[in-house]
Design a protein around this nucleic acid. Structure first.
Lengths: 244, 244
DNA sequence: ATAGTATGATTGTCCGACAATCAGGCGGTC
DNA sequence: GACCGCCTGATTGTCGGACAATCATACTAT
């Protein structure tokens, strides 16, 4: 039996500094919004050079654990905004050559329960957001870009209405990937726009009436429609989604 | 009507450099595995100082777009591994004070369709992984830590069997958050271990028999069991999950 | 109260330097 | 030929210092 050893855990200074600060943020000893000490002070506190501190700060900045308010110098502790996290996730998915089918399958899993849950949990304000999204889409779904944005906003509004914070976070990268494909579809298949409008309207009404089953049924149909649209347009669901 | 202006888009050098390199990675002009030029050369190419390059590299490193093989100096283009992305996501969720209920709701949404899909799409190899996970859990679910790992591995194996790359990515952060709570539960509620073993066995058998409906049914029960376990243990589902 | 001004603090970027260590070649030993 | 130690160059990690640009603040003048 040969003795096996773990590799020695050594990390360069900038990484250790970053981990140290990140740990303090995660265990709430540094609160969100609190300004970070200036680089020079961090350097003396950690006993390293300012360059090292700066490299650590870039890591934290990239992880969205610290940020800078527009036009200010001092960095403040932040928490990753859903859209930023989603952007990272989308990047990762794109680099893994995720196919349109995979994205669509996930939407098929997530959205119907989301609609059902939204019917049960919606607040008046959340319903208003959904209604606004439906109205906005109905108003100007001529312009392809606005239409695509409208579709995404509708899904976001429904997800927000569930009151579950995790759902929007998982949904967002899918929407971003869907958007790329949708831009093609929405130009090529005019009837799709009307079908989308109808589905949105019905889902919105069902959520308003707190009819979870109906909301789910329409949402299932709505999501399935996208797939049909892609097939009609000749978009290959098994090829990687276009990176954006 | 007052004229409104957008804020001037200015980014410091290290960020522009990072974006530039990131763009080349995302559009595949830099391929995964390809070594990056040395810092000094990047500095001359971009016409900036090496310190600036290094700060940019720290950003990319934190985004997992570049990495270093163990014990080497040169950086290579990488793509974010699912576990790394999941770690980021978990961080974000923890900082947003996600509750146990929210995590559990998402599992309730994701897992049953995953089991159903796995029954249809599983390969022999994927089934073997599931069976191995079940066997491993059965073998040593005495040790609490191993038991928790076993539960997570079972879910991972099922998700992998669906052939959908996105699912493991979305599931992973939930599992990581679940694990923290599970460590408490599994010590406090001995009967839970047996129930888990039974459910795993049934789900595995159903997937092996390609019985999607049955797999889904058992998975639904399995996930619901966790909630019951938490309630029995007196874990408050509406309080934030313990950060890990 | 508002607008201008002076002052200090802080960041972004640069330069140069050096130790540590990794990659690859070279020769020696078996 | 395979393995070992050794040397050399390349590359990274870290340091110290420097300076301009810009932000924060207090103070002043209108």
């Amino acid at each position: 039996m040969s003795a096996t050893f773990e590799p020695l855990p050594f990390a360069p200074g900038y990484r250790r500094v970053a981990s140290e600060i990140a740990a303090r943020i995660l265990d709430r000893r540094l609160k969100v919004g609190e300004p970070l000490p200036p680089e020079a002070e961090l350097a003396t506190q950690f006993g390293v050079n300012r360059s090292t501190i700066r490299e650590a700060l870039r890591e934290l900045e990239s992880a969205d654990l610290v940020a800078r308010r527009r036009g200010t110098k001092r960095m403040v502790v932040a928490r990753p905004a859903p859209t930023r996290v989603a952007g990272r996730l989308r990047q990762a998915l794109a680099l893994h050559d995720v196919s349109g089918r995979e994205v669509w399958e996930m939407l098929e899993v997530l959205e119907p329960p989301a609609a059902e849950s939204a019917a049960a949990a919606r607040t008046p304000a959340a319903l208003e957001r959904i209604e606004a999204a439906v109205a906005a889409y109905h108003a100007d779904h001529r312009d392809a870009r606005r239409a695509v944005d409208g579709v995404a906003e509708f899904f976001r509004a429904v997800a927000a209405a569930t009151g579950n914070q995790v759902l929007p976070l998982m949904q967002e990268p899918l929407l971003q990937l869907l958007a790329a494909a949708l831009r093609v579809l929405i130009d090529a298949a005019p009837p799709a726009r009307a079908r989308i409008a109808t589905a949105q309207h019905e889902i919105c009404a069902a959520i308003g009436a707190r009819d979870g089953a109906l909301a789910r049924t329409w949402m299932t149909r709505h999501v399935r429609d996208f797939r049909r649209g892609f097939e009609i347009c000749g978009i290959d669901l098994d090829s990687p989604v276009p990176f954006a």
